[in-house]
């Protein structure tokens, strides 16, 4: 059998925490095997060999917050057959998208002594707002099993097998008592995408939505449940306004509970 050339992969980042790309290096057991199966051409945080495109697959970690990012993502897209966003930053704008609800000038002044040195856009936007994206992993952080699944499925030409269910489904499958029912702890599980294995409820805390909104999430109904549990308007507002604040359904729900930015 003729050996096929190894698919060429690139990893990109800008405004993000680096974890999603380091998930690749967190695959301790799989790292060396993975490195044998794919050809990592561009991964600045792991290698000083940086080869230019074209790439078969680009993994993009960052959200767009500067004009330089806009230029870079268009180049990455043009150089890549497939492009996948990894993590909440790239898929929804990340925690830094809280600026979208504030005055970015005021944010700059709050942090920097010389605001005139800072160039940044008013909003932190997901990659899909700039170029077409082939697949999105919206978790903050992504988990390595999903990442490996996406890489192998896409390179094999299949659709990644990532269920579109809510965190609650994972609780039910495992038989974890619901923290809302059992202890009255507010939980975002009903509207949050599964994938983490419902780890928060297993440690007695409510989900805070780091995997982003599930498809067809009924956020309004959940907000009513939270109210019934005694959560005030501001806490509901804040709950939807975190790592996935700019994701459509979470943004709308947070706005329904006050348009004030918590950070003002």
């Amino acid at each position: 059998m003729e050996a096929r050339p190894r698919p060429v992969v690139a990893v990109w980042k800008f405004a993000s925490c680096d974890d999603c790309q380091f998930s690749l290096l967190d695959c301790e057991d799989e790292l060396l095997a993975l490195a044998g199966a794919i050809d990592i051409a561009y991964f600045a945080e792991a290698s000083s060999t940086l080869r230019s495109g074209p790439y078969d697959l680009s993994l993009v970690e960052w959200s767009v917050t500067t004009t330089e990012d806009e230029r870079r993502i268009r180049r990455a897209r043009a150089d890549s057959k497939q492009l996948v966003t990894i993590g909440a930053c790239a898929t929804a704008g990340g925690i830094q998208s809280l600026r979208n609800f504030a005055d970015v000038k005021e944010y700059i002044e709050a942090v920097y002594a010389s605001p005139e040195y800072i160039r940044t856009l008013a909003a932190s936007t997901p990659i899909a707002a700039h170029v077409p994206v082939d697949f999105e992993l919206r978790d903050c952080p992504i988990n390595k099993h999903q990442l490996l699944e996406v890489i192998s499925a896409l390179l094999a030409g299949c659709k990644p097998a990532i269920a579109d269910e809510s965190v609650c489904v994972a609780c039910k499958k495992r038989g974890t008592p619901c923290v809302m029912v059992a202890h009255g702890t507010p939980c975002l599980g009903p509207v949050t995408h599964t994938g983490c294995g419902a780890i928060c409820s297993s440690y007695g805390r409510g989900c805070y939505g780091c995997y982003g909104p599930a498809e067809a999430a009924n956020t309004a109904a959940l907000a009513r449940t939270w109210q019934a549990l005694g959560a005030d308007r501001r806490s509901i507002h804040r709950a939807f306004r975190s790592f996935n604040a700019a994701a459509e359904s979470f943004r709308k729900e947070s706005e329904a509970h006050g348009d004030e930015n918590p950070s003002r």
Binding site: G94, L98, Y107, S263
Partner: peptide, 9 residues
């Protein structure tokens, strides 16, 4: 690295 404004947010 672009600023993410943690102190502000």
């Amino acid at each position: 690295e672009p600023p993410r404004f943690f102190e502000a947010l």
